[in-house]
């Protein structure tokens, strides 16, 4: 009986299984045809030359480290920057969501700073922190701060009033209300904010690595490759950036689907 169910599930998946591949394959075919037609590797290289770069992720490129080395550098920066941003945003969001006085005090400042793109902070970051890890972390932290903050705020506000009141009548202290009702109740929304924030952080790190004076990271690598007209390296680097971003988002979403199922099922 159980085996049947599993078999059925597998069969049901099969016919649709290849749908996702149709557009990417079409895209690659069009690319290859265009590359042949243009016939200029400095504008659009053939698939094969990009594939060669991707197939040798550990070999150094133009004397500035391999794809893997640079990806690791970028990932380290994004993790540190995101951690700083989220570590500031979550407590502030909880405080703003829980105490309206904090909200009224801080909100005007948030409204003014939020529309400034993280990259507009680059010159100031350079002036304050000079070239190096600190300014990159600053930019990345800023980029992830706002989505995490706003989702945390939203999550805390969406916690049902009777969840809090039930806890209070069961004897919860203010601290217990925060840690045992508000945080777990808001966590699915906070997690969504972290996903969005991490996505933006990943975009920021690539851009931040294009700042003058940087000498490693995927953003640096593709800009450096441009200076040597190595378009196949630029594209290979972009593909790696995209795949890492997709991989991280998928991981975070899987976790969300597994752990926070109650949000959808709660009627």
């Amino acid at each position: 009986m159980r085996e049947n169910v599993q078999k059925n599930r597998r069969f049901r998946g099969t016919p649709r299984g290849f749908h996702w591949a149709v557009m990417p394959i079409l895209f690659l075919v069009v690319w290859e045809m265009a590359a042949i037609a243009i016939n200029n590797q400095f504008i659009l290289p053939r698939l094969g030359s990009v594939a060669v770069v991707l197939a040798t992720p550990f070999s150094p490129i133009l004397g500035s480290g391999s794809l893997v080395d640079n990806a690791i550098d970028s990932l380290q920066r994004v993790v540190v920057g995101f951690a700083v941003g989220a570590a500031l945003a979550v407590p502030l969001g909880v405080a703003m969501g829980r105490w309206s006085t904090v909200d009224r005090l801080v909100d005007p400042l948030i409204q003014v700073f939020r529309p400034i793109p993280p990259l507009a902070w680059v010159p100031l970051a350079l002036a304050w922190f000079k070239i190096g890890l600190a300014s990159m972390v600053f930019i990345i932290a800023l980029g992830s701060f706002f989505p995490v903050l706003l989702n945390t705020l939203d999550g805390v506000r969406s916690v049902k009033r009777t969840w809090i009141e039930a806890a209070m009548t069961l004897g919860a202290t203010e601290r217990q209300v925060l840690t045992k009702v508000i945080l777990p109740g808001a966590l699915p929304t906070i997690w969504t904010g972290m996903r969005v924030g991490f996505g933006i952080a990943w975009m920021c790190v690539v851009a931040a690595e294009m700042m003058p004076g940087t000498n490693s990271g995927l953003g640096y690598l593709i800009l450096y490759a441009y200076n040597f007209s190595q378009v196949q390296v630029i594209i290979a680097g972009m593909i790696v950036i995209g795949l890492i971003g997709l991989g991280i988002d998928t991981g975070l979403r899987r976790f969300e689907e597994r752990k926070f199922r109650w949000r959808e099922l709660e009627r």
């Binding site: 009141e165 069961l170 004897g171 202290t173 009702v181 109650w262 949000r263």
Partner: peptide, 29 residues
């Protein structure tokens, strides 16, 4: 206060807690 137990119309259970952990919540606090 826990001297006065309250039951709400919307049940107000914690969806992330199992039934037994919902019931044990007051004792946990």
């Amino acid at each position: 206060t826990p001297r006065l137990g309250m039951i709400f119309q919307d049940y107000s259970l914690y969806p992330w807690r199992r039934v037994v952990d919902n019931i044990a919540f007051g004792l946990e606090l």
